[in-house]
Nucleic acid binder design. Structure first.
Lengths: 332, 332
DNA sequence: TTGTAAGCGTTATCAT
DNA sequence: ATGATAACGCTTACAA
């Protein structure tokens, strides 16, 4: 910048004004052009780090997700990245689990991150002050301390239950993780509540806890199939589990959907790649990420203004009826 | 840091020595303890940005990939992230395509990124000076200017061909993108060369170009199935295409593997979730990412020392025989 | 409209 | 062994 100033024959702060400057264009047009040309000639690139130091901003956002192997989170990150890039923010990625989330937060904080987006980590269970003073947006974890973007998880469970009930199922199961992640618990609640309203419940044998992964789905479904009585349909907490469950059924030569209906949640790409294609409840992962980035950036820009987290209505979900669900065997 | 110094009754630079300090322990043990305690009491967190400003380092790495929707790249990034975190580096993510790669590079450069890892963007086709002066590691793109980590793509194609030949296939097809991405082209080359060595070739009708996505695989396979003569087996440039091809076959009631053998490349998780499970050549994506991060960081630490990119032997690939390949129909 | 001076939180180089 | 002092590249009053 110093060189540019010299070349343009002006002072260095003036260059700063022109280059990074606010629209408070208090610079003669001629000078402005001269500076811009000099900058171009010299191939000058502003140093965002230095700018960040004086402004105490880094123009970057952190994202913390638990598991990249789950395409759902990859999509969330993708959404965040798109919006962030568009708005001039860089995205610093933290993949959870192995490293405790607080460590990630500390690292982001040290880098003067402007804001953090957290998905499925259970921000509530972090040590109280881990997030203190940070601008954070939570995904699928309602909060009155932080910004948050949620999906209609209750509706997702309800939709799944209604779909199964509508097909005539009366003995249904649920496969889900023991996790405290809000979305999983709420999907389950919506599902169970809707069944209850119809006078049904999930027998304890038909409620299997397993990690929300394909492997978890496989093992949960295997257990289920090994039991004396089986449900005619199961709802899985997410698509990975559902895909695993489907796999387990096909491996065990249990026909889907004739002998076992399966419905998942998320609508990841793979849901349409398996045969039969997976019926599922669509959660718009990319859109969730994008929204989170948007509300967070908006907050950053309006700064200390409205401190009240604007209530975002939950993102609508949608039933995608495909081929893994049908009327139960024996019902015409 | 100033506060810590005051609290410990020493000068601020001394605190710097003790906290970020090299093992050049030129500080009295007593003082050292006093400083460390003060830091802990004050909950002091070093400001990496400020440190970066004076050292012209940011302790972060950029990663540029073309498509997050492809689990392969998610895995690569995962590998990078693990190693980077371990070594104290943050990972700044850039998802390609929409935004030209040069824009991403510029943004990373402005943030004083210490190094960049680029996968499948075709770094060679970037404007000459886009990467000038940057520490870069390329994934699956051999280069004598930059560090690079490759897989044995030629071997991957060869393995696929040998497998198919071994099963007795004589009329085989290839589905791949028109892309210039080294890995795709090289897999194709290895495949074709091996066939040629066996006196076979891929008929031009049986060589379908389509995007390396599931949708691409579906449409390519559809075209293939619509033709007068069909191959008895196809090799797909990656698993996403193979999964799409499989889908297209099953949809068209073409039995796999009896009427059509399919072999993919990558071994993404989804390969084991479909039925029948996909035969494929495993490329260790996570390991590639991890390696790239390691060589890049090693370079950063040894600085201007050895400028010669140490030759890394290509990462071995491995044939995963599963259920989408078998002897062609009509062959006992 | 432009230049001057101060300072952001560090590290690095010296004297002391 | 410790502490001034000068950067690092930039923004931001404020003075000219």
């Amino acid at each position: 910048m110093h060189d540019v100033a010299q070349m343009a024959g002006v002072s260095q702060p003036l260059v700063s004004q022109v280059i990074g400057g606010r629209p408070s264009v208090r610079v003669a047009e001629v000078t402005r052009q001269r500076i811009l040309r000099a900058a171009a000639d010299l191939g000058y690139q502003p140093n965002v780090v230095a700018r960040g130091l004086v402004q105490s901003r880094s123009y970057s956002l952190g994202v913390i997700v638990p598991d990249f192997a789950n395409p759902f989170f990859a999509d969330v990150v993708d959404g965040v990245e798109r919006v962030a890039t568009e708005e001039g923010y860089a995205v610093v990625l933290c993949n959870g689990l192995d490293v405790p989330a607080e460590t990630h937060v500390a690292s982001l904080r040290a880098r003067q991150i402007d804001g953090v987006i957290i998905d499925a980590i259970g921000a509530a269970s972090l040590p109280g002050d881990a997030l203190a003073g940070l601008n954070v947006a939570l995904i699928d974890e309602p909060s009155d301390m932080y910004l948050s973007v949620t999906s209609d998880a209750l509706g997702a469970g309800r939709l799944a239950a209604e779909h199964l009930l509508g097909l005539g199922h009366r003995v249904v199961g649920f496969l889900g993780p023991a996790s405290n992640y809000w979305a999983f618990r709420t999907r389950e609640r919506g599902f169970v509540q809707t069944l209850r309203a119809a006078g049904l419940r999930v027998a304890s044998d038909h409620l299997r806890r397993a990690p929300a992964t394909a492997a978890g789905g496989i093992s949960a479904m295997r257990t289920l199939l090994g039991q004396l009585t089986r449900p005619t349909a199961v709802f899985c907490a997410n698509d990975l589990m559902a895909l695993g469950a489907l796999k387990a059924c096909l491996t065990a030569r249990v026909r889907v959907p004739e002998e076992m209906s399966i419905i998942g949640c998320d609508d990841i790409d793979a849901a349409q790649l398996v045969t039969p294609e997976l019926t599922t409840v669509q959660i718009r992962a990319r859109e969730m990420g994008a929204r989170a980035a948007r509300v967070l950036i908006r907050r950053l820009q309006s700064e200390t203004k409205g401190t009240r987290p604007a209530a975002n209505s939950p993102l609508a979900v949608r039933l995608m009826v495909r081929r893994t669900t049908s009327v139960p065997r024996g019902v015409s």
